[in-house]
Design a protein around this nucleic acid. Structure first.
Lengths: 109, 109
DNA sequence: TTAATTAATCGTAATATTGCAATATATAGA
DNA sequence: TCTATATATTGCAATATTACGATTAATTAA
């Protein structure tokens, strides 16, 4: 199949899974780190700095954008990308909310 | 292709991506939430509570176990699963370290 | 207008993931 | 031992993901 049965899960579970999936690739992590560390917009320097083809990076950027994690602005002939601040904050909250549900080790295992 | 070029990324980026991939499915999120909320071991009640076949759930449990996120103990005829406390803590640190690299909105976008 | 530059999209090949039925394995109890 | 119960594994079909070359679209500069 290869198709996830989203209908049997809550909206929240599906949303979190979608966000995590967008993050779950080393290239996309590398792209996001670069944007965060640079603390400025990244305009095209990604190609050549990561060892991936232009089409591949464009595809990863699209996925990050679809997930709402980054935003892009056309800057002349190139495009500037940076973290989407509000959504990044939401991601942090959503994720930490999920991780914090764990209340410490249990007795039985 | 469908194969990730792990060799061009850092060990850290690959590790984080692997962990996130293990989390990035609504069924696995649901399983983990159940374990966290129950705050006790889950022994087989998962099948039937989620709307997935036994084989499918077993597969998801295996993935979570491979990622080190849960641990299982044989309890007679059934198996008890719970969150792996140390690794869960590591995940929290790893993830929050990553998310905190973002230093707030930039001027250019 | 034309040429150069940059990024997006298309098409495709290779591989991975999801889900399940069927089967195998392992343990407890009769 | 035999049976029932619980979980793991196998094999398979459908779909998704990753990567890239080729092409297209959009903008700037000449």
């Amino acid at each position: 199949m290869g198709v996830t049965k989203t209908e049997i899960f809550t909206e929240e579970q599906n949303q979190l899974a979608t966000l995590l999936k967008a993050l779950a690739h080393p290239a996309r992590i590398a792209i996001l780190q670069r944007m965060m560390v640079a603390n400025t917009c990244i305009c095209g320097d990604l190609v050549g700095e990561l060892g991936l083809a232009q089409a591949t990076i464009s595809q990863h950027l699209k996925e990050l954008k679809n997930a709402g994690l980054i935003q892009g602005t056309i800057e002349g002939v190139s495009v500037c990308y940076c973290i989407h601040p509000e959504n990044w904050k939401k991601l942090e909250q959503h994720l930490s909310g999920f991780l914090k549900e764990f209340k410490g080790p249990v007795s039985c295992c």
